[in-house]
Lab assay of single mutants.
Amino acid sequence: PDFTLHWNGITIHFKGIDEEQFRHLRELLDRGVSLEELEELAKELIK
C-alpha cells in the first residue's frame, strides 16, 4: 500500500510499505529524526 505523511511542512510519499513499517516511520518522525536519518531509513526500505 501507499502512505502519505505530512511532516514539518514536507509531504512524503511511501510506496509499497506495510502499515507496520509506516507506523515505525511515524514514531521516528514524532521523536525528531533528522532528514539524514530519514534518507538512510528510506535506503534500507528500498533494498
Rank of each mutant, 00 (worst) to 15 (best):
L45Y: 14
E27A: 10
D30A: 10
R26K: 14
G32C: 04
E19Q: 11
K47S: 15
G9S: 04
P1D: 10
A42M: 14
D2C: 01
D30K: 08
R26E: 10
K43V: 07
W7N: 05
R26C: 12
I12F: 05
E19C: 10
T11L: 12
F22W: 10
L35D: 02
H24F: 12
Q21G: 13
H13D: 08
H13L: 08
L29S: 03
H6T: 15
H24D: 06
E36V: 09
D2K: 11
P1H: 13
K47W: 15
L35A: 08
G9K: 02
E19F: 10
K43N: 11
P1N: 12
E27Y: 08
I46G: 10
T11H: 10
E44Y: 02
Q21D: 12
L29A: 13
T4P: 01
G16V: 05
E44G: 01
L35Q: 05
E20H: 14
L5D: 01
Q21R: 03
L38H: 00
H24V: 13
L28S: 08
K15L: 11
K43A: 14
E36Y: 09
D18T: 15
E36F: 07
E44C: 02
E39Y: 13
E20Y: 13
K47L: 15
L5Y: 04
E40C: 03
G32S: 05
R26P: 00
E39R: 09
S34G: 08
P1K: 14
E20A: 13
E39S: 05
I10G: 06
I46D: 15
L28C: 00
E37Q: 07
E27I: 05
I46P: 04
G32A: 07
E19G: 09
H13V: 13
D30I: 12
T11V: 11
G32T: 05
L25W: 03
R26Y: 11
G32M: 07
W7L: 13
W7K: 12
H13N: 11
I46F: 10
D2G: 14
H24P: 05
H6E: 12
E20W: 09
E36A: 11
D30W: 07
E37M: 08
E19T: 08
L38F: 10
T11A: 08
S34I: 04
L38G: 00
A42Q: 04
R31H: 10
E37N: 04
K15F: 13
L35P: 07
A42W: 15
D30V: 09
I12S: 01
N8Q: 11
T4H: 11
K43T: 10
I46W: 06
P1F: 14
R31V: 07
H6L: 10
E37G: 03
T4S: 11
P1E: 11
L5I: 12
L38P: 00
A42R: 04
E19M: 04
G9Y: 03
L29E: 00
D18Q: 08
